[in-house]
Deep mutational scan, measured.
Amino acid sequence: CKVCGDVASGFHYGVHACEGCKGFFRRSIQQNIQYKKCLKNENCSIMRMNRNRCQQCRFKKCLSVGMSR
């Protein structure tokens, strides 16, 4: 997965992504979610083991690796 490094389940929203990141991105855009501000200057490292800790940084990384509708 380009977002968290887990095993990708396919090509989702323009990038190779796992089911977790695919679902997270889908919910984020469909529900237009505004995530809580990052407590670490929006510089969190997103990996499989910690991908749920900072939703703002995870969504930012989804966009930075090329995920789009």
Rank of each mutant, 00 (worst) to 15 (best):
A8T: 08
K2F: 06
V65C: 05
Q55N: 09
V65T: 06
D6H: 02
K37E: 12
M47K: 10
C38S: 05
Q30R: 05
K2R: 12
R48V: 15
H16D: 15
N50A: 13
V15M: 03
L39W: 05
C1M: 09
C18M: 06
E19W: 09
N52V: 06
F25L: 03
S45C: 12
S45M: 14
N32A: 08
R51G: 12
K60Y: 14
N41W: 04
C38M: 03
C18L: 03
R51Y: 11
R53K: 13
V65K: 01
N41T: 12
G5H: 04
K40D: 14
V65G: 03
M49C: 03
K36E: 14
K61C: 03
L39E: 15
Q56P: 10
Q30M: 06
Y13V: 06
S68P: 02
C1Y: 07
M49V: 13
F24C: 00
C38V: 05
C57S: 01
C1E: 05
E19H: 11
V3S: 10
L63G: 00
C62E: 07
N41F: 03
H12L: 05
V3K: 01
R69D: 08
S28I: 07
C1F: 07
C62Q: 01
K61R: 10
R26K: 08
A17R: 01
N43S: 09
D6T: 07
S45N: 15
C4E: 04
S28L: 03
C4S: 01
I29E: 04
I46D: 11
Q31C: 05
I46L: 09
V65S: 09
G14M: 02
K60R: 12
D6I: 11
V15L: 09
V3T: 00
A17T: 08
F59Q: 06
S64H: 07
K37S: 13
N41A: 10
S68G: 11
G5W: 04
C1I: 06
I46N: 12
C4V: 00
C38W: 06
G5E: 05
F59R: 06
S64C: 07
S28D: 07
C38T: 02
E19T: 06
C4G: 02
S64M: 11
H16F: 11
F59H: 07
V15P: 04
V7P: 09
V7K: 14
H16R: 10
N43F: 08
F59S: 02
G5P: 05
D6Y: 07
A8V: 02
L63Y: 06
I33D: 03
K40T: 13
Q30T: 14
E19P: 07
R27W: 13
L63S: 00
N32Y: 02
G23V: 12
N43Y: 01
I29Q: 08
C38Q: 02
S64T: 12
M67E: 06
V3Y: 03
C38G: 01
I46Q: 08
K61H: 04
R58S: 01
H16V: 12
R58G: 04
S28K: 02
C21Y: 11
N52S: 08
S68F: 05
R48N: 14
E42N: 12
L63P: 02
Q31D: 09
G66V: 02
C54W: 00
I46G: 09
M49Q: 14
R53F: 15
C54L: 03
G66P: 02
H16W: 13
F25K: 10
S28P: 04
M67V: 02
K37G: 07
I46V: 14
N52D: 14
N32K: 08
G5I: 01
A8D: 03
V7L: 11
Q55R: 07
Y13D: 09
K36Y: 09
Q55M: 06
I46M: 11
N52H: 09
Q56V: 10
L63V: 06
N41M: 05
Q55S: 11
L63W: 00
F59I: 08
N32G: 11
V65Y: 09
K37I: 09
K60C: 02
R53Q: 15
Q56K: 09
I29D: 03
R58Q: 12
R53E: 15
N43Q: 11
Y13S: 05
R51S: 11
I46R: 11
F24H: 01
F59W: 09
C18W: 03
Q55D: 13
G5T: 02
E42I: 05
V15R: 01
R69S: 14
M67C: 05
V3C: 00
C1W: 02
Y13T: 05
V7T: 11
Q31S: 10
K37M: 15
K37H: 09
F24V: 02
L39G: 10
F25S: 05
Q30N: 07
Q56M: 12
H12T: 06
V7W: 10
N50V: 09
H16N: 09
S64V: 11
S28M: 09
C54K: 10
K60E: 13
M47I: 07
N41S: 12
G5F: 00
V7S: 11
E42M: 12
K60S: 09
C62G: 01
K61M: 02
C4T: 05
F59K: 01
F24K: 00
Q31E: 14
E42Y: 04
V65N: 04
L39T: 11
L39M: 13
V65Q: 03
L63K: 02
V15E: 04
C38K: 02
C18R: 03
I29M: 10
K61W: 03
E42V: 02
M67Y: 05
E19F: 08
V15W: 02
L39C: 13
F59E: 07
C54Q: 00
S64Y: 06
L39A: 13
V65E: 10
Q31R: 09
D6L: 05
N43R: 11
C4K: 00
I46T: 08
R51A: 10
I33P: 04
E19C: 00
A8L: 00
R51M: 08
L63T: 06
M67K: 03
M47E: 15
R69M: 15
K61T: 04
K61E: 07
G14E: 08
N32F: 07
Q56C: 08
I33Y: 10
S45G: 11
